[in-house]
Design a binder for these strands. Sequence first.
DNA 1: TTGACATGCAAGCCGTGACTTGCCTATCAT
DNA 2: ATGATAGGCAAGTCACGGCTTGCATGTCAA
Lengths: 96, 96
Amino acid sequence: MADLLFKAMADGTRCTILDELTDRDGQTLFELCSRLVMKHGIGASRQAISQHLDVLEEAGLVRTERSGRYKFHYLDTSPLREITARWPPPPERDKP
Amino acid sequence: MADLLFKAMADGTRCTILDELTDRDGQTLFELCSRLVMKHGIGASRQAISQHLDVLEEAGLVRTERSGRYKFHYLDTSPLREITARWPPPPERDKP
DNA sequence: TTGACATGCAAGCCGTGACTTGCCTATCAT
DNA sequence: ATGATAGGCAAGTCACGGCTTGCATGTCAA
């Protein structure tokens, strides 16, 4: 379960995709491709980005919604919360 | 920077190591190896675990301290905080 | 209907990463 | 000093993941 999440995050391009969706939620595949090239200098092909989105969706980080010939991608960062839940900050000791 | 962190987390064995250090901090390499076998059924070799620890240390998730012929491994989960900082929870809208 | 647009599917190439194997170094007890 | 213990280094194997290539499907406008 969490395995899919971490493997999804273990790629720079996918992290940039999450950044892009943070900046503008609900983008289509083509929209994402062009903005990744423009703003981040990522020259990946459409298929590459599509496969990245599949991985992100499997990890629960992206939810999709189809409308006609468009497919919109929405960010869902809630799975990231379980990371800090699994390894919480150490209890603060030496308080003055 | 964050790249090392995510790649470090993208392996089940390494996550289990973090779990083990959460349970008992400051273990040596051999201690970790035996406990990983006992409690988690991980049959990795000593060298494999050692390499995993190197990756975790590079990511800043583990700090080491040498004393004589022992090397103790301490967990540091603070790098995980920047994950939730980079993709914060969406602002709560539809409040009733 | 027909062509353009947006996306999906599948096989293959290739580099990276996890693991092993073999040997070496260093520290402590006897 | 010598053996046992704890760990380090480096080369090699092998599977997986990211990317490409080529074609197929589905939707909308003219």
